[in-house]
Structure formats: C-alpha cells, structure tokens
C-alpha cells in the first residue's frame, strides 16, 4: 500500500503542506509543578495522507493530537507551531479557531457514548454543525445528514433515533458521520475503535479507509495498536515519552523497525501463524515513564527509552538523542541509526 501511495503524492508536494507541525511541546501545570506531556514533535501531513500515531499510555499521543486544535484543558501550555494551510492555529483568534474546528478539521473521540448528547436525536446532532457553519436551511441540512448517515452504512430513517438506541459500533459510525458533516480537510481520530469488538472494529476501520480514499481527507489516527495503524495508514509515528521515537512509511516500520521500541511494540501483538510468537509472548520489561520521571527527563541528557532498552549502551545514557534519517522518508531517534549509517 505504502509504495504506491508515495508515488502519487508529488504533484501536491509543491505547495505548502496542509498541516505542518513544528516543535510542538505541551506542559501541564498543576500542584505547583510542571509535567511535560509532549516534548518536541514535528511532522507534516497533506491532503489524502494518513498518519498513524502509536504509543502507550503516557506517551503523549492523545495530548499531541488534541493540542493541534487547542482542545486541551487550560492547565496545558502549548508551544511550537501548528501551521494549518500556512496559518498558525496556536496563535489564531478563538473565532478563527472555531471556524477551523467546525469546517476544516474535526475530531472523532474515543468514547462514542459520552460524546453524543443522550437527550437529542442523532439527526439534530448531525445537523447542528451544518446549520451553524454552512448557513443552509433546515431542509438542506436534514438531507445532508441523511446522506451522511447513509455513507457510514446506517439507514437514513434512523435520523430520529436517540443515541441509546444504537450499538457501540453504530454510535462510533455516527461520530464519524458528524466529523464529516462540514466536509473537513483533516480528521483527527483518537482511538476510534478501542472500545469496540474485533468485528465492529474491522467495520469501522473499513469505513474510515473508504471515506479517506474517496474524499482525499487527511487523517491522523491515534491508537495503541500498531497492527491496526499499519493497515490503515501510509505513514506511522511511534511516540515514546512525549517524543517521536520513529516515523516513516508503515510497512517499513513494521517489517524493519530501526528503533528498539518500535520493534517491541510490533511484537506485542502477534501474527497468528507466526511460529516465533507461538507460546512466546513478547513484552518489554519495565514501565513507561511516570509524569515525574518525564519531568526529570526534560532536564537530563540521554535517551528516554534507555532504561527499558534491550540494546542500550553507555552512550545512550549520556548522548542527546534526536530524530536522525534512517532511510528514505523515515527517521528514528536511536544512536544505533548513526552507527548503522557510519559503518
């Protein structure tokens, strides 16, 4: 999938990328101290491209995604640049940001039940952004809502139903319909299938994949499941301790990871039929850094992954690690990458 997708991109490359994130940092202040959640993340995304962000809890992946549209609580300090169509969203006025949130970029949250208002019909909820933003009549909005529901595989006669009348997978599809309501250019999907069964998850992912292919929407999808992401997205960013550990084309990251953490994550979910993983679950000793450890990391040198790394050397404790090119279109934050290219 990756190889072909890369080839059709060049004609859009000339212009500014749709989304250009530069040195994004998020700190939470609370209880008299500052806890870093995102520690310098940069990437770009174009129309029709899909980027998967993988990581464990505390890796900062959700914080990073939500900070793009300034959806974080006020205790979060966001610095850096989020250039959307060349405009910095972090410094944009609230009115402008609201307009972007309505029409240009939308979010699919993980908890579909809590994100839907239980006392209003889903028709009303899908129509709301259309009415507010597109300034069309009730009838047009209604027709568009019916169309949207149809496109996510639900009968349009159910516009008058309430959220509790749908199953979990159906509600997640309604969330996607709502995200599509104003024909956005970018969708941020935060763990869109985490609470769903495998069968329903497959349905929702299939749907998202089709919509992206048909409409050329840019998608940032966040998940802890590397295998799901690698099949949904062209490019993959693996986050650890608030930084990108490795970024590049999905297939390559899965088949030949350059960062030991990517390798460990890839092995965590086995491929059925792979004799190497039969009766041999693969894990990684230790735990992701706690908030206070993250605060210390920010001040010290060395690789954040070093304490858990099976291949760590003395240099990993003292050298500053940053993303280095590790192949065409990919980068990894590991000293081994430098060794590999040097030797």
């Amino acid at each position: 999938m990756t190889a072909t997708d890369q080839s059709h991109a060049p004609e859009e490359r000339a212009a500014v990328p749709m989304l250009d994130v530069r040195d994004l940092r998020v700190n939470y202040r609370g209880g008299g101290r500052t806890v870093p959640a995102v520690r310098g993340v940069s990437f770009t995304l174009d129309r029709g491209q899909t980027l998967g962000v993988a990581g464990e809890s505390g890796s900062g992946k959700s914080t990073m995604a939500l900070s793009l549209l300034r959806l974080l609580p006020s205790s979060a300090q966001v610095t850096g640049q989020v250039l959307f169509e060349g405009e910095d969203l972090l410094t944009a006025k609230w009115a402008r940001l609201r307009a972007v949130r309505w029409s240009a970029a939308s979010v699919v949250f993980q908890g579909a039940m809590s994100a839907l208002n239980p006392v209003r019909t889903i028709g009303e909820q899908i129509c709301e952004p259309i009415l507010l933003h597109d300034k069309v009549g009730q009838k047009t909005a209604r027709a568009r809502a019916a169309e949207l529901l149809d496109s996510v595989g639900l009968p349009s006669r159910r516009l008058g139903s309430y959220p509790h009348e749908f199953s979990g997978g159906q509600r997640q599809r309604i969330m996607i319909a709502m995200a599509l309501a104003c024909r956005p250019d970018l969708i941020i999907a935060d763990e869109p299938t985490t609470a769903l069964d495998v069968m329903v998850q497959a349905q929702v992912l299939n749907l998202l994949g089709e919509l992206v292919r048909e409409s050329g929407i840019g998608v940032i999808m966040i998940s802890h499941d590397l295998s799901v992401l690698s099949h949904m997205c062209e490019r993959l960013a693996v986050m650890y301790a608030g930084q990108v550990a490795e970024i590049g084309p999905s297939k390559q990251l899965i088949t030949e990871p350059r960062h030991p953490y990517t390798r460990a994550l890839g092995r965590a979910f086995p491929t059925i039929g792979d004799p190497a993983s039969r009766l041999a679950p693969a894990g990684l000793p230790g735990d992701p850094p706690t908030p206070s450890e993250l605060a210390k990391l920010n001040e010290s040198r060395g690789c954040a992954f070093e304490p858990r790394c099976p291949e760590a050397t003395d240099a990993c404790r003292t050298e500053t690690v940053e993303l280095w090119p590790s192949g065409p279109g990919r980068e990894a934050a590991c000293l081994r990458v430098l060794e590999g290219s040097g030797a």
């Binding site: 464990e56 809890s57 965590a268 679950p281 894990g283 000793p285 992701p288």
Partner: peptide
C-alpha cells in the same frame, strides 16, 4: 494494559 506490558504479564502466566 499497555502493549509492551501485555507480553510481560502473558509471559508470567506461562
């Protein structure tokens, strides 16, 4: 549990 911890707990059961 987190992906990297999952394997450790499964290893423990084995």
């Amino acid at each position: 549990l987190d992906a990297s911890v999952r394997g450790e707990i499964l290893k423990l059961i084995l």
